[in-house]
């Protein structure tokens, strides 16, 4: 990990709201993080906790209305992303910053062939000729493990399997050698052998090109294998942030602990029933005035219901947003 270098992407105090007929949804609240070149930042968290909305907000990808980024400083290589024009943003997206969306079927256009969707960014961003772009497109498809790549450029998305569509998305995101790759659940539709292949590919690109990667996933096995640092999100906030080993060995947020306990395994005794975290996810109808996890937390006490904990440092590089202190088994003072 290239320590000490400047962050390539730096996000401070991001807040995104949806204004719907039924009122506001405070999907992302005071989210701050940064990532350096060559680093892999894993993002985990409850379904609906704001992982995708955070990343879409960064690149101005959310339709407004209903979405509004109400606050936040977003810097790419020191440049203020929120001050950029739509044209500048378009240049950044798909050029310097590659994006793999969570839902391949909606982000691939069903009326264009896969080849066209791969060739377009190559022509726009890298100014390749039509021919050079098709050659490169076939290479990219082969790189993500699609058999008969050159022949399949003329196929439409619905002719591909779920996992193949996901790999097409990865190929599109990687097309222009991005400096930052934001991958939202990029391997959910892949079997473990192809997932292993994609992970190797990403590791390789990271080393060769110093690509910075944000990898959102529910698969803690993947996180354990590839991440340098991990963000844990809950209820629109970052509740814990730590180097990967530290997170697995010494989790400090009750949500993180509960999450790690729910992982099913392929080895060892088979549980009769899977463990889940009881209770409902928080309502995001207003800006949080208390800890979003309090209602489900075994350690919650009065303060947690009256105040939203800020992130505090536990050890170098490890912070947690929680009033409980596992080290002392009591409330944290301060």
């Amino acid at each position: 990990m290239p320590d000490g270098s400047e962050p390539i992407l730096d996000v401070h105090d991001l807040k995104t709201i949806f204004r719907t007929r039924d009122g506001e949804v405070h999907a992302v609240n005071s989210v701050s993080f940064s990532i350096r070149p060559g680093e892999l930042l894993g993002v985990v968290g409850e379904s609906g906790s704001g992982k995708s909305v955070t990343m879409m907000s960064l690149m101005g990808l959310l339709p407004s209305p209903p979405a509004e980024v109400v606050r936040g400083d977003i810097r790419y290589q020191g440049h203020d992303v929120r001050a950029m024009s739509e044209a500048q943003l378009r240049k950044l997206r798909g050029g310097d910053i590659g994006f793999v969306f969570q839902d391949p079927m909606t982000s691939l256009n069903p009326v264009f062939t896969v080849g066209y969707q791969l060739v377009e960014p190559l022509r726009i961003h890298l100014k390749l000729s039509k021919r050079a772009a098709s050659v490169r497109a076939a290479e990219l498809l082969a790189l993500v493990g699609i058999p008969d790549a050159a022949k399949r450029l003329g196929d439409f998305p619905h002719q591909f399997s779920g996992g193949m569509r996901q790999r097409v998305m990865i190929a599109i995101a990687l097309a222009c050698d991005p400096k930052v790759l934001i991958a939202d659940e990029p391997t959910t539709a892949l079997d473990v052998t192809i997932q292993a292949q994609i992970i190797e590919l990403i590791k390789d690109l990271r080393q060769k090109l110093g690509m910075a990667i944000v990898w959102i996933t529910h698969d803690l096995g993947v996180i354990a294998e590839i991440a340098d640092r991990v963000l844990v999100m809950y209820g629109g906030q970052i509740v814990e942030h730590a180097p990967v080993r530290e997170l697995f060995r010494n989790p400090q947020h009750p949500y993180t602990r509960a999450l790690l306990e729910t992982i099913p395994r392929v080895d060892g005794a088979r549980d009769a029933r899977l463990r889940s975290i009881s209770g409902q996810p928080p309502s995001l109808a207003a800006h949080p005035a208390s800890c979003p996890f309090a209602a489900r937390c075994p350690h919650a006490f009065e303060r947690c219901l009256a105040e939203n904990p800020a992130r505090r440092l536990v050890s170098p590089g490890h912070d947690v947003a929680c009033f409980w202190d596992f080290a002392t088994g009591g409330a944290h003072h301060g």
Binding site: G162, E185, L259, P264, L274
Partner: peptide, 20 residues
Amino acid sequence: DEPIAALDVSIQAQVVNLLE
């Protein structure tokens, strides 16, 4: 068909328990 791929582990567990 991949009913739980998009879910976090806790909700995966809920859905699997529900299916059971």
